[in-house]
Design a binder for these strands. Structure first.
Length: 561
RNA sequence: GCGCUCGUAGCUCAGUUGGAUAGAGCGUCGGCCUCCGGAGCCGAAGGUCACAGGUUCGAAUCCUGUCGAGCGCACCA
């Protein structure tokens, strides 16, 4: 149990003694170091219930609290009724020791109830290459899955392939048009078809591969053949792009499977059995308004075909039937209006709190102060691959993750390509590499640095104490980020930590304060500081790896001419 | 017109679920380092939290309204 948890338990007990059961005691590290190591607003929260002055209650809480047993060196009432605690040095040093002991597990936690969770993301139609917006969803979904795993859940990453329906037919027709153009015919891309140049390349490839067969086919056969060929080809490309972007899906689930296994009819029957569908104007409607949607939605059109909604409900029903206890979908902003009806449909099927939807907002790319235009309609766009091949995978992933996903972001290519510490990715990676370089210089294996042979009580510099407190917070940061499905919380933490680390490192520069360096002559102090450096390195590495980034041993800057 | 997301420093963004004097990076300015430039280090300036009300010990955070931005509002996918 961490010192904060111990103290919280004691505070809860005191609150109960004062006649306030079940209060959620908040215990936080104040921003301002003058306010101690931990602070609680408990007295102010109780003031309302007990109808007494907060400061008076604070005094009483302090009188009843076993401070020494909780590792508290001193405590005081401050401000409107905050209680500030200062922990003993022993508690501080123990926190660093814990980092080294837990090593790769530091930051991981166990949930109250372990859930089997599916994270579905990217799920791009196989009608073209992945573009930058998919990249943001890919980075986000992957990091959220990783966060959930770090907090002890069982997680699977899934890509849903929309390989059925009219858009796929248009793809086949579009490729057919490109192929016929290649054969010298006057062929137009069909209405609603795909104009991208990638289909010109694909037409050439498929011709090289199967010219004789294509020529021999009827028009209908040919479109069907090209459709299958293109889908297979684009799916493989999506998979390859994601792998190169370091996203490893656990499964790809094709929409066609929903059809083949008869899940749609099954789902519609279940909804009908529950009395939640009705016919009107020749169509079958789902009563989503009974579950919070603002209008009912069509499942089967009057021409007898399904809307997109029907297979989608069936697919989500399968998620629950496949044994997932919770599902998280990452959707693009253009689908956010779809959230209430999907949740309503699941509620109708008896899965009211099954689904969470995270919305990923638009990405705009700026270079030299100007927006890089992404025009899908004209068929010219910046693909995800082009982006990460230019910036590197670490940078692209980090940039996508460092902002809240539900706000639009501007991707600053100039900053992304900057290799100095102005670039937040490099700032964090530099801090990690610096620790590794210290170990190299000291001639020690990082993993051999233990706490047994180090006297951590020698770490008495204020910066060292602040740094240890910062490291100790990592597990709470991970939990909070997982809870909020918000990887940017980890990014912010890593940048803040790296900033502290870098100034700690620079303070020990031989030209300034050689006595503050890690590698001082005094052997015991040197060992203690190496242990702190090791703690720093563990936290930065764990944080970077959690986000799917590399934690380099050394930075190699590309020489620019 | 209705709904969703959002509006915080010149720019890009955080803000620990309602807490103490609203933070960071970039940019700007000053100093240091450097053969010069870049990089790096130290420091400073910079705010009506879009606006107006309300809720309470306490609001950037919650509620209502207004203004502004983006995206949705299909028997499209």
């Amino acid at each position: 149990m961490s010192p904060a948890e111990q103290l919280r338990a004691r505070l809860e007990r005191v609150a109960a003694e004062l006649g306030a059961d079940g209060v959620d005691v908040q215990l936080e590290r104040p921003r301002n170091p003058e306010h101690g190591d931990l602070a609680t607003n408990l007295a102010m929260v109780l003031a309302g219930r007990l109808r007494r002055a907060p400061r008076q209650i604070a005094d009483e809480i302090l009188a009843r609290l076993d401070l020494e047993g909780a590792g508290v060196a001193s405590a005081e009432v401050a401000g409107a009724g905050f209680i500030n605690f200062r922990l003993t040095g022993a508690v501080l040093w123990e926190q660093l020791a814990r980092v080294l002991r837990e090593d790769r597990a530091f930051g991981r936690s166990e949930p109250e109830d372990r859930l089997r969770i599916q994270v579905e993301f990217v799920s791009a139609n196989p009608t073209g290459p992945l573009h930058v917006a998919h990249g943001r969803g890919a980075a986000l979904g992957d990091a959220i899955a990783s966060l959930l795993r770090w907090t002890g859940h069982e997680v699977e990453r899934e890509f849903y392939i929309n390989d059925a329906g009219v858009q796929i037919q248009r793809l086949g027709e579009s490729l057919d048009a490109r192929w016929r153009q290649l054969m010298g015919e006057e062929a137009a891309i069909p209405e609603g078809g795909y104009h991208g140049a990638y289909l010109v390349d694909m037409a050439r490839e498929v011709d090289a591969e199967a010219h004789d067969r294509l020529v021999a086919m009827s028009a209908e056969e040919r479109v069907a053949f090209l459709r299958r060929w293109a889908v297979e080809r684009l799916e493989a490309e999506h998979d390859r792009t994601l792998r190169d972007f370091r996203v490893q899906m656990d499964s790809y689930y094709p929409e066609t499977r929903i059809y083949e296994e008869g899940r749609i009819a099954e789902t519609l029957r279940e909804l009908a059995d529950r009395g939640l569908t009705y016919e009107s104007e020749g169509a079958v409607w789902l009563r989503t308004t009974a579950f919070g949607d603002d209008k009912d939605r069509v499942l089967v059109k009057s021409d007898g075909t399904y809307t997109y909604f029907a297979p989608d409900i069936a697919y989500h029903r399968e998620k629950a039937r496949r044994g997932f206890q919770h599902a998280i979908d990452i959707w693009g902003a253009d689908h956010h209006g779809y959230v209430p009806r999907m949740k309503a449909a699941l509620a109708a099927l008896g899965y009211p709190d099954f689904l969470d939807v995270e919305i990923v907002q638009m990405v705009r790319i700026m270079r030299g102060g100007e927006e890089v235009k992404i025009s899908k309609r004209a068929g010219e766009f910046v693909t995800l691959r082009e982006l990460f091949e230019e910036t590197g995978v670490d940078v692209a992933r980090y940039f996508f993750l460092m902002r809240r996903s539900d706000a639009q972001m501007i991707f600053d290519l100039d900053l992304a390509l900057d290799q100095s510490e102005k670039n937040p990715v490099y700032k964090v990676q530099y801090a990690h590499a610096r620790m590794m370089s210290i170990f190299r210089k000291a001639g020690v294996e990082p993993s051999s640095i233990g706490v047994e042979d180090a006297d951590l009580s020698l770490l008495r510099e204020p910066v060292e104490g602040e740094l240890i407190k910062q490291l100790a917070e990592f597990p709470a940061v991970v939990s909070r980020a997982a809870e909020a499905r918000a990887p940017h919380i980890v990014c912010d933490y890593l940048e803040e930590t790296a900033g502290m680390v870098n100034s700690w490192y620079h303070a020990g520069n031989p030209s300034r304060n050689p006595e503050l360096a890690v590698l001082v002559p005094h052997p015991a102090l040197r060992r203690a500081r190496l242990a702190l450096a090791r703690g720093v390195q563990i936290v930065l590495r764990n944080g970077l790896e959690l986000l799917g980034l590399s934690a380099p041993d050394r930075m190699q800057r590309e020489e620019t001419a």
